[in-house]
Amino acid sequence: MSAAAPAPRFRPGARVAVRRADPPGHLRTPWYIRGKAGEIERLCGAFANPEELAYNRPGLPAQPLYRVRFRQREIWPDYAGPAQDTIEVEIYQHWLEPAQ
């Protein structure tokens, strides 16, 4: 564990967007959440990058991992439930960018 984890870029409450990308390999970013905007709920810590671990590489530096909260109606335009329903997803920092 020599490589230090990059500093967390986002604080709880920050508005972020999930990158809309489709690289090959083992990804832990669900398809349905790519390109969507939400809010940082908490920083979970730094964890070895699963996209590297899957290929027996060390996955370092570890990536900050966040809980990101999204509004269901912003994920599914025809969501049948009320406006306050939410979904939280764990997203690694390299999949997030600032959003308005």
């Binding site: 669900p30 699963p50 991992l65 329903d85 997803v89």
Partner: peptide
């Protein structure tokens, strides 16, 4: 309807 439903997708290390 008045209750918030919060879904947690366990996508990583939690």
């Amino acid at each position: 309807e008045a209750v918030e439903l919060r879904v947690h997708d366990s996508t990583a290390d939690m």
